[in-house]
Simulated scan of single mutants.
Amino acid sequence: MKKISHSLTMAFIVLTSPLTFAASSTDLTVTGLITPNACTPTLADGGNIDIGKVPVKNLNPTLNTEVGKHYMSFNVNCDAPVVFAVKSIDNRPDTNIASPLFFGLGLTPADEKLGYFWPYVGNLLADGQRVDAIRSRDGGGSWTRATTINSNELLATSTIGNTAPIAVKDLSMLLWISTYIARTDSLTLTEEVPIDGSMTLEIKYLP
């Protein structure tokens, strides 16, 4: 009986399929969440690092030269525990060298890429407890352990050894920012050139 029933059903579908019609409409759905909680990020010293004057003779002609390693505290304070991430935005896009993960230092007057800076993260404390830094490259779809802040990625925190973002009220961490100037055989340095790196750290609330 099962074989006969199945054969009849298939025949019915074949016979009636020419009479089906394509849908003439589709839906767009907007979702989200309004939260009463807000978080405020702050960087020590107003987020300013002054490399000072770097003589050209101190720069390597064939290798990138590290011209500064600076330490800075970074804090995020929220009204209440909330799951959030920090999005890093390179304000000098397409001027860094070597990797899209870095943050550019601007261009020389001859439109040459001057170099890059790259913040490392450590000493993370969430509400007084040690936590890990985690990153997402797909907008929060997946997370992996992190030791640096990379351009245009999300940085969040997790309990030690895990990779799931957690709710935090007060977060603190230490950044150490390494700054490199490109090899001088790729640069025109016949006049003073400003070092002009900039990034924005933006709070993104997670579901």
Rank of each mutant, 00 (worst) to 15 (best):
G104Y: 01
L33V: 15
C78T: 07
S158Y: 02
P93L: 12
S151D: 08
P41L: 00
H6T: 15
T20L: 11
F21T: 15
F12G: 14
A146I: 01
G32Q: 12
T188R: 14
D27K: 12
P36I: 06
S186V: 03
K204G: 03
T40F: 07
T200G: 05
V168G: 01
M10P: 00
T148N: 13
G32L: 10
F103D: 01
V76C: 09
I4D: 07
T31V: 04
G128T: 05
N77P: 01
A38G: 08
I177V: 15
T147R: 07
T147Y: 04
C78V: 08
W118A: 09
L189H: 05
N58K: 10
G47F: 04
D79Y: 03
N48K: 13
N96C: 13
P100F: 07
A22M: 10
I160V: 12
W118C: 07
S73Y: 06
P119A: 08
T147S: 09
S178V: 14
D127I: 03
I13N: 02
D127A: 05
T40Y: 06
G139E: 09
W143Y: 11
S99K: 07
S99L: 08
A164F: 07
V30I: 14
P41Y: 00
N37G: 07
I89G: 06
D111K: 13
L175D: 00
